[in-house]
Design a binder for these strands. Structure first.
Lengths: 273, 273
DNA sequence: CGGGTCGTTGACACATTTCAAGTTTAGTGG
DNA sequence: CCACTAAACTTGAAATGTGTCAACGACCCG
């Protein structure tokens, strides 16, 4: 699929390429307001907490380079990663409204990040509906990803989980991918395990199986998926939940007031059928 | 904890007691606008789909009575419930922006629901920042719940998962609970299994253990938790992610522009520490 | 050159699933 | 109100995917 190049695509600025900057709900003015509010980029080492569970933060952090994650520790010392954050992702959107973050955010690799003061974000969302709608959209996407993670953790084998994760990352990092895909993949097997609810050892064995079957190849922190279709079948992966198509479609037609709805009664009566 | 009774508490209307109606971000006018937009209540039998994965819906559904769930089927025929919806919950907030829902919504018991036309909701969110903020808040809460579900599925034993689920439901359905808790619990063991990524058989065995240990008791579709504290320990449950305290605190002090933030530099330098 | 992180592999333990009955409960129609 | 049926719950025995423990090797960086 060829993406139509709009002037938005070529626009530059601190939010270029980020989830915020890519939003199709922003007017030029709104985007400029957001860009005026972000701090200058900062470098962070690997394995440092940007947010600690329960500790209030005054900033929303945006990953520019490197990877991070949202995670929770259990009392027994286990870690569950609930979201992988790749370049362009917002780390802690929930800090916009929550006084106490209910999970931590930590870098997984050396990273450079940018901060958006929470109060300014909140004020902008209050006065600009496009910014509010962007936050809603981003929250929904996070939500969809989390929902599919739950499906993977609850109902898929180790092989299926791993395949699903790799497919998702391919979709997020290498959108143009067609038959095959290739993207930067800096995670250790321990980190993968923490994301998939598996042991390091078992991640290793499972990864080996995928590799031996020619489903993936890793060279030099680069993941290569020779046949995306095949890996998708194994992981039960359907990319529609990431809604990249809809996001792109919205570039051409910004729906402030979408086409009128079917009458309530009609729409509702369909329930039984 | 004694909840301060405001006139909001006593206000009546179709949204009374729902997540939308309880929102602390709504002005009286905004609440009235929302209430004017919802349909009259409708009865639905158990096990009927309100939303089918991929099929566009023009309404947001709100559960008034009974239980429902958000779920995804795997190709192998397994079902994973990603959210339990209890009276007051919004079923498909994501339909507000997504053209294709990425998971289904189905009643788990006979239920009565109410519909809010998506277009009206969208228009209201565009013109009323309190409504937009309410949607953002609700999305964040869903998100937090999903995040903890992932932790449960990925890192807890069957016993821990079950305990965690019951603690969460206690918190959502019986907010006033102190030492012990009691609430309506109509789920079958199969449905519990689908929510926790477990087999019916194993849910049964695990439930038995909790019962034999006096941690829970079920009589006549009513769940009784003699010691919430004890069950919380087993499930590693910390209720803060549901943010009920903050929601209540906001009743007294509506923060349109919260207290000013620490300067960027200061706030940011704390990162390394 | 050395120390630590990361990847790899084997043997064994165990939580959970699977398969296969039964039993109890709830709903329904005569 | 009872009889009948389907759904939900219960229990056992065996299979299996994943975890645990323990060791070793490869690689990188200082």
């Amino acid at each position: 699929m060829q993406i139509i190049s709009t002037d938005r695509e070529t626009e530059d600025g601190p939010l270029r390429g980020t989830s915020l900057g890519r939003s199709t709900f922003l007017s030029r003015e709104e985007r400029r307001s957001l860009e005026g509010a972000v701090s200058s980029p900062q470098s962070v080492k690997a394995n440092v907490d940007l947010v600690r569970e329960g500790e209030h933060r005054d900033n929303l952090f945006l990953v520019i380079e490197g990877w991070a994650c949202r995670y929770t520790m259990t009392r027994e010392g286990g870690r569950q990663i609930s979201a992988l954050l790749v370049p362009g992702d917002l780390c802690n959107l929930d800090s916009l409204l929550f006084d106490r973050p209910d999970c931590g955010v930590r870098t997984l690799t050396p990273a450079t990040i940018v901060a958006l003061p929470r109060d300014q974000a909140l004020a902008l969302a209050t006065h600009h509906s496009g910014i509010a709608r962007t936050f809603i959209w981003l929250a929904f996407i996070e939500n969809a990803i989390l929902g599919k993670l739950a499906v993977a953790l609850g109902r898929r084998s180790a092989k299926g989980r791993l395949a699903h994760l790799l497919c998702e990352l391919s979709e997020r990092l290498d959108v143009r991918a067609e038959a095959k895909s290739r993207f930067d993949f800096p995670l250790t097997q321990e980190q993968i395990g923490d994301a998939l609810g598996l042991t390091t050892v078992h991640v290793n064995r499972t990864m080996r199986i995928l590799r031996d079957n020619g489903l993936v190849a890793i060279t030099n922190r680069t993941m290569i998926i020779p046949s995306v279709a095949q890996l998708r079948r194994i992981g039960g992966f359907d990319p529609s939940y990431l809604h990249v198509e809809q996001a792109e479609a919205q570039i051409t037609a910004l729906p402030t007031h979408p086409k009128s709805s079917v009458s309530r009664a009609t729409s509702f009566s369909r329930l039984g059928g």
